[in-house]
Design a protein around this nucleic acid. Structure first.
Lengths: 226, 226
DNA sequence: ACAATTTGACAATAGTTCATGTCACTTTAC
DNA sequence: GTAAAGTGACATGAACTATTGTCAAATTGT
């Protein structure tokens, strides 16, 4: 009995092997559903217990899935963290952009709307806040890179915001990117302080404090045409 | 042979048992020397490989000491991290204060001196930079508390600095602490960006960018007496 | 009805870490 | 010189973790 006889028409290099429907959904649907569950569970565990405590087992348990399915969607813990982070920054950015568009077209309302969306998102989702403000730093070089990119993207947002306020020329500053990074850092730090004091201050207060720095930068440049 | 006979005059509750000199130094000296070695090794390992990779074993190996001596000085990894952090923030603050005192007594020189001390310390000690800017966040509630306190202390420094620039009245802002926290966050974020791009920009550039935000806040308030 | 696929509970392996313990060796006090 | 204190290399055990594997039960296509 020569072992070269295949037991079916399947090749030695196994075919994609189209999946069967199960409980009403296709294989792809089920897989992406599990992916979503893991993403949500990841956010929940990281947001509640921190990334250090977010073991594969605890995430799967939270997701109601077996460990095997973890590796179906992610190579490892860090890959999950990266995806969760990307998803949540995307979500945050979309909320801010939506707020911009829904806002009245005057500068004060415009920038308040963006900041409101930012701080609202965090206070309504403490898990996201903990992830974005605390857990993401110092994990690995790869994650640091991700963090850096996200900050730069938010700097672009901030730039649009401050420029809408009238900040025209800060060309005497060697690196304008640094200034915008600084403004992002200011808002993030205000958010961290807010989170660490359990969101005790009213949201308007943190918005005003943030806005103060934006407007100050704006006015300074505007008032200094020379 | 009744086991109640003590083998010496030592009590059942063992006495403090005064230590013997060894290799020229007293027990206290040796212990505090080991403590220093562990602190330095901790900074080195955390600064080079991150806190996650800073196992008790790796720290002791770096320190050239046995694991037993770790627990002589620290209850656990986290206790070491806390002490290293406190030591380095103390060091950073002392360098900044020294810079203030050595500076000429005009506002521009004064604030530049402080910022120069800050950024110089980080670029000269990448270990410290990594610890203070990245590794300290998201470790535990205890460490977060420490971070929060350190930030507030730096906010006081910043406040002194900006007030020396003439920032008098920002009383229309609900929480002034938030504004100062924001300025601290701005400087920290600029430092993070600088570190993540391998300190490529000249130090004067990051100083000017930071200063811009300070001066902007100053001028805005000053120019807005109403 | 029945074989194949899918799933979930769980075992297994190999590795790591913390924290403590053992023990031979070095140094000191007397 | 000798007993005790101090040291360093290493062992140990309990607890985790990541990752793969096993297997019976549930579900499906035919």
């Amino acid at each position: 009995m020569p072992k070269t006889i295949a037991k079916s028409n399947k090749d030695a290099a196994q075919m994609p092997q189209k999946s069967r429907r199960y409980r009403g959904s296709s294989g792809d649907q089920r897989r992406s559903e599990r992916y979503e569950q893991l993403l949500n569970a990841g956010l929940s565990v990281i947001g509640n217990q921190g990334y250090a405590a977010a073991s594969v087992r605890s995430i799967c348990s939270e997701a109601g899935l077996t460990e095997r399915y973890f590796y179906e969607s992610f190579a490892n813990r860090e890959a999950l963290l990266a995806e969760v982070y990307k998803t949540q920054t995307r979500y945050l950015k979309s909320r801010m952009l939506a707020a911009f568009e829904a806002s009245e077209r005057n500068t004060a309302a415009f920038s308040r709307a963006g900041l409101q969306a930012f701080f609202d998102t965090l206070s309504q989702n403490p898990d996201i806040a903990r992830l974005l403000l605390f857990e993401i730093l110092g994990v690995s070089d790869t994650i640091d890179e991700l963090y850096y990119e996200a900050m730069e993207e938010f700097a672009v947002l901030i730039r649009a915001l401050t420029e809408s306020l009238g900040l025209a020329d800060i060309s005497d500053i060697p690196d304008q990117g640094m200034v915008y990074a600084g403004l992002v850092g200011a808002v993030l730090q205000i958010a961290r302080r807010w989170a660490l004091t359990n969101y005790r201050e009213p949201v308007d207060s943190v918005i005003e404090s943030s806005l103060f720095l934006f407007v100050a930068a704006t006015n300074y440049s505007a008032a200094k045409p020379q």
